[in-house]
């Protein structure tokens, strides 16, 4: 049986891992290669590295980072942040990343998803969605782009369904409302999206205690959970989180 995955997310800027609350108030959390290697040894199922600066200069740094990580990390990892062409994806995948995640570029040019899927296979293409609750309408979320700074009118559910058709292999679904709050994932959002698509959904934003991970999987229907604050600052270990999920009857790779 397929194990439920716990995926630490490392937001990288200027060569350091940082973590904020609702995408702002960033706090230093260490060296990305070191932290990645530590997570790999500690039993993380996968890793995500997000270049949150996403400038031309930082992109070059990301390729070097991916090469270094690939030498030390023997679990799959995804790279994202500012990726807008198939050539950039090729460079990152050749450098050792297992998957690439795209967000703003896919919203601007949805055919990018199809081009990438046809070349690398659907399983390589992660569509990242930053979702914000629409204040006027219940159970409606809008897609935000440019690292959450720019709201769009795009409905998250419609976008997820379209992206699956275009060839996305996985959805990394971040609730901007919950991000960094440690108050739990937005499981209405997770449930709505995971019911609407057939590809795996990674719940992201809001994990503060083990129960939140369980809830994202059971109430939110998530295939995997993204974490950051909960383990970056040594509040919990990956093993503690997996032991908890196992004790609640979920399959984990422990």
């Amino acid at each position: 049986m397929l194990a439920k995955r716990i995926i630490p997310c490392l937001d990288v800027t200027d060569g350091r891992v940082v973590k904020g609350v609702r995408f702002v108030n960033l706090r230093d959390a260490g060296d990305p290669v070191e932290l990645g290697a530590r997570y790999s040894q500690a039993g993380a199922d996968e890793l995500v590295f997000l270049d949150i600066t996403a400038t031309i200069r930082s992109r070059k740094t990301m390729v070097e980072l991916v090469e270094k990580v690939a030498e030390k990390v023997f679990i799959p990892f995804t790279v994202g942040g500012g990726i807008s062409t198939v050539e950039q994806m090729d460079e990152l995948l050749r450098s050792g990343a297992e998957k690439v995640s795209i967000n703003t570029a896919a919203v601007n040019n949805p055919t990018l998803i199809t081009q990438a899927a046809q070349r690398f296979g659907n399983q390589c293409i992660v569509l990242a969605i930053d979702a914000r609750r629409c204040p006027e309408k219940p159970r409606r979320w809008n897609v935000c782009v440019k690292a959450g700074t720019q709201p769009t009118d795009l409905d998250v559910l419609a976008w997820a369904i379209k992206a699956e058709k275009l060839g996305a292999g996985e959805i990394l679904l971040t609730s901007m409302d919950a991000d960094g709050t440690k108050a739990g994932y937005d499981n209405q959002l997770n449930k709505a999206v995971s019911d609407a698509v057939n590809i795996p959904v990674i719940a992201s934003g809001g994990a503060g205690k083990p129960q939140h991970l369980y809830d994202a999987i059971i109430s939110g229907g998530a295939d995997a959970v993204l974490i950051a604050s909960i383990t970056h600052f040594q509040n919990y270990t990956i093993e503690q989180l997996k032991q908890y999920l196992k004790s609640r009857g979920l399959p984990v790779n422990l």
Binding site: A3, R5, Q123, E170, N198, I199, P200, A224, N253
Partner: peptide, 13 residues
């Protein structure tokens, strides 16, 4: 075959 999450993604025994 359909009727499950595709891709088959993650750690399996």
């Amino acid at each position: 075959p359909e009727g499950r999450t595709i891709p088959h993604m993650g750690w399996n025994l």
